[in-house]
Design a binder for these strands. Structure first.
Length: 356
DNA sequence: AACCCGGGGGA
DNA sequence: TCCCCAGGGTT
């Protein structure tokens, strides 16, 4: 490191070492009893890290238990069908994670076991810089600093990093602080301690500086002018409106459903056609009030339109046109559907059945 | 570097 | 409403 770099920093290695020791002591008494920490395994750690990508711990816990029950080992996961994995993942979002997890399980089994270092993990589908560092440090004891959203927040505030954390210079600065903090003797506990600190104390709004174990070396401690603007991030576009219509062609207890394309929103999940039946003898009618469903980058205004077909044959003809499938409601429920569908499912079904 | 990809919870 | 969450992949 050059002399100029050192002078621009408002923290030094001694501060980082103090913070590390203080944090370790704090973590000993504040670590949460998360399920994957009780009987640690590479498989359980891997599952948790994939599920917790952009997902809150409290949201991930039930799914982690479900996967442990349905797919107790990486071999079980690899042998399961993609449909089974997607159904288990239903509702958790970012469905590509489930497919990449499944693909990675097959790779792991074909190679006879889990990777033995960070580089090996990084090569697996769905494993990036953060997840590889997390698994390697927690599961293999490799001395690497894992940087997630919590760490970005803690490090930017503590070290006074004002460059956007998602810019090249900002990311390098964050990595520099995280590396300086790293406890190479117990990197797994250390990385989890930093994240725990970010989740429990150094929260996005109203951080609890009075309870913070590293406040004595922190650039932003008790300084709202600092912590309120850190971490800085490049601005994101607001969600665009998406007017979506699902056409539910139904007859008796059967409907026409489609599997969505393998790219784009809700890839490979099941849904209803967005086109209206072309030659139905009966008029279409809205089944339920329009639904507003917010995604990160799309604000969906969904209209559910039903068409009562006059026969099962007509249902099949329409299914062929849209490359769909005729299924009973019960058969539909065995597939993985977007949250938009599951949250109105019972009303949708009732409205269709009432229209027959 | 910018964009895409879900869904939910807290302020 | 807005922001953020144990991010990764694609362009």
């Amino acid at each position: 490191m050059s002399k100029g770099d050192f002078l621009q920093k408002n923290w030094c290695q001694t501060d980082a070492e103090r913070a590390r020791r203080s944090l370790a002591k704090w973590y000993d008494s504040h670590a949460r009893d998360l399920p994957w920490r009780l009987t640690p395994s590479l498989y359980g750690t891997w599952l948790s890290e994939i599920m917790l990508q952009q997902t809150r711990v409290d949201t991930g816990i039930p799914k982690w238990h479900l996967f442990q029950e349905l797919f107790p080992s990486v071999e079980d996961l690899a042998q399961a069908s993609e449909a089974e994995v997607m159904k288990a993942w239903e509702g958790l979002g970012y469905y590509r994670r489930a497919r990449l997890l499944h693909q990675a399980a097959k790779v792991v089994v074909s190679k006879g076991g889990f990777p033995e270092n960070r580089e090996g993990w990084l090569a697996l589908p769905g494993i990036g810089p953060y997840t590889s560092a997390a698994i390697a440090s927690i599961g293999l004891g490799e001395a690497v600093a894992a940087v997630d959203g919590n760490v970005q927040r803690v490090m930017s505030r503590w070290g006074g990093v004002t460059d956007p954390v998602d810019s090249k210079t900002g990311a390098q600065a964050i990595q520099g602080v995280a590396d300086a903090w790293l406890d190479a003797a117990r990197p797994g506990d250390h990385n989890q301690a930093v994240m725990e600190l970010g989740a429990l104390v150094c929260s996005p709004k109203q951080p609890r500086c009075a309870e913070c174990p590293v406040r004595f070396t922190c650039t932003s401690a008790d300084n709202p002018d600092m912590w309120s603007v850190l971490p800085r991030k490049t601005p994101k576009r607001k969600a665009a409106r998406w007017d979506l219509t699902w056409h539910v062609a139904h007859h008796g207890n059967q409907v026409v459903a489609i599997q969505r394309p393998d790219t784009g929103v809700w890839a490979t999940l099941w849904a209803f056609p967005e086109r209206a039946p072309s030659k139905s003898n009966t008029p279409s009618r809205p089944l339920i009030p329009d639904v507003v469903h917010a995604l990160t980058h799309k604000r969906i205004h969904a209209r559910m339109v039903g068409t009562a077909m006059t026969s099962t044959e007509e249902l099949h003809t329409w299914a062929q046109e849209v490359n769909g499938v005729v299924m009973t409601w019960e058969e539909c429920e065995a597939k993985a559907w977007p949250r938009l569908a599951t949250k109105v499912w019972s009303e949708l079904k009732a409205a269709c059945m009432a229209g027959n």
